[in-house]
Nucleic acid binder design. Structure first.
Length: 472
RNA sequence: UCCCCGAUAGCUCAACCGGUAGAGCGCCGGACUGUUAAUCCGUAGGUUCUUGGUUCGAAUCCAAGUCGGGGAGCCA
């Protein structure tokens, strides 16, 4: 019966005979006939120290095979360690090398690697301290998110991944088709050269009978269930075919989108804040070793920042107030600040990192720079939008109170150049039993970024998809 | 997509005004040690991203391309 390393370190009482399996991180060998092996099986950040000596059969030959990256099965007695550095250690009685790892070829060294290098080794990087920790923290975050909503009676509703509604215009969609692209390409080439006008594809011949793509957001579908079964959330993959090359964007990322009926913007803000703080507290309690590692090796202010975020109320102010602060700051910005202009990254960063040094929720943005579905304020100039900004990341949550008034929504669509007919079902929600409702979207990977302090979002997901990169 | 920067040993990097390649780490060998990313000594290891150009001579200069990184935009 296999015992996990995490249990050896925390639960099993010394004196017990255990059977552990895992991968060798390092081996410190003495020619006197004994060796120390650091074994990791992913169950915890810490390794289990194995003490192997020449009482093992064929020790000399065996220990040569125990190289960084090799997999082992070891049985022996768990004992209190006489040396500093670990409380317990395993004295091997049997040791079997399950799979060797040629040290001359194995890509991972005992010492650190650049993250750029490790991204090219996505099949091996979870065996490193950083990515093992990342996997455990990401898991804890996901669990905390579900727990938060489940504890409050939210239903977990799956939004479609393939969609034919090009709603919201939020970024370019990846197209989904079963049409023969090679054949279309030939046809397109000949038609353009002969007729001189763009070639039109007949989507009635495509799988869904119309143009389809991967979802960029489940929000509009989310409103359907919010306006029927009540509080609900999605937690699923989202796809953006934007050519974004930054440390904060992925082409495939996971998004959490709660949507609540009878919520006005203030309720929405309160939920978002409580949610973020609750998730952080939960992970702080559950993954102390992993977060300590990130604090020691990745971002020295991490734990202080997380305590600060989870322990203080978020600053709440309107877009108009934010613009005033920026104008009065005396700070010189690359992009000018002015009412009606969207806030740039540098402005958001100034507010959350320099001015307040805390998460900030900005609300009531000018209607011209926000989406059609956000509820119009009575001033005729602003809408009930909110962005949650956190130090180091910037925008982590975007949300709003939705426009529930049928006539206002239609005129807003027209104002935004959209055809109301394309949104017939969305409009019917306002025609039949409409209610005030609100929701927001949280980027999972940006949350992982915030909680681990990792610089690049490509290191916050097991297999990142970015422009020109979708290996593994 | 735009602006910058980069690509040299397995990894991280160096190589001055253009003169034929160097260190640390890792690996391997040895020494030493209840060791902790151990330490000390030694060996091996290179088609300098690709293509073209300039030159007696290119890692180095020029052009194009590919890939990577940072910033911006878009956003989560």
């Amino acid at each position: 019966m296999r015992t996990k390393v995490a249990d050896c370190l925390k639960k099993v009482t010394p004196g017990t005979i255990v059977d552990v399996r895992g991968w060798v991180r390092t081996r410190r060998e003495s020619k006197q006939g004994f060796a120390f092996i650091e074994l990791n099986d992913g169950s915890s950040f810490a390794n289990l120290q194995i003490v192997a000596d020449k009482s093992l059969p064929d020790y000399e030959e065996l220990i040569k095979l125990v190289q960084t990256g090799a997999s082992l099965a070891v049985t022996g007695e768990l004992k209190d360690s006489p040396a500093q550095g670990q409380k317990v250690e395993l004295h091997a009685q049997t040791l079997k090398v399950l799979g060797q790892a040629d040290a001359a070829k194995y890509p991972l060294q005992k010492k650190g690697h650049s993250f750029e290098f490790l991204r090219e080794k996505a099949h091996l990087r979870p065996r490193t301290n950083t990515f093992g920790a990342m996997a455990r923290v990401r898991n804890a975050i996901c669990d905390a998110i579900h727990r938060y909503f489940q504890d409050r009676g939210f239903l977990y509703i799956h939004a479609p991944i393939i969609t034919t509604s090009d709603c919201e215009g939020a970024g370019h969609m990846f197209q989904v088709t079963t049409l023969d692209l090679a054949k279309l390409g030939q046809l397109q080439g000949s038609r353009i050269s002969e007729a001189g006008k763009p070639f039109e594809i007949d989507y009635t011949k495509d799988f869904f009978g119309k143009k389809a793509g991967l979802t960029v957001s489940g929000q509009l579908e989310g409103e359907i269930f919010a306006c029927s079964v009540g509080d609900r959330y999605t937690f699923g993959p989202t796809f953006r075919a934007e050519n974004s090359n930054t440390t904060r964007h992925l082409a495939e990322f996971w998004m959490i989108e709660p949507e609540m009926p009878f919520y006005e913007l203030e309720d929405n803000m309160a939920l978002a804040e409580d949610f973020v703080r609750s998730v952080i507290k939960n992970v702080l309690a559950r993954c102390p070793d992993d977060l300590q590692f990130f604090n020691d090796r990745i971002e020295p202010t991490l734990l202080a920042t997380l305590e600060n975020i989870s322990g203080h109320d978020f600053i709440k102010l309107t877009y108009t107030e934010a613009v005033e602060i920026l104008l009065k700051s005396g700070q010189s910005f690359e992009y000018p600040v002015g009412w009606g202009k969207d806030l740039q990254s540098e402005h958001e960063r100034f507010l959350t990192e320099k001015h307040f040094k805390q998460p900030v929720i900005l609300t009531d943005y000018p209607r011209e720079i926000k989406s059609f579905y956000m509820r119009a304020n009575d001033d005729g100039k602003t809408v009930r939008a909110m962005d949650v900004l956190v130090p180091g990341i910037g925008e982590i949550i975007g949300g709003s109170q939705r426009e529930e008034r049928h006539d206002v929504l239609i005129s807003r669509m027209q104002e935004c150049g959209l055809n109301p007919a394309d949104y017939w079902w969305y409009l019917e929600l306002r025609e039949y039993g409409t209610v005030p409702h609100s929701g927001f979207g949280l980027g999972l990977e940006r949350t992982v970024q915030m909680i681990t302090g990792m610089q690049n979002i490509r290191d916050c997901i097991p297999f990142p998809r970015t422009p020109k990169s979708a290996d593994f």
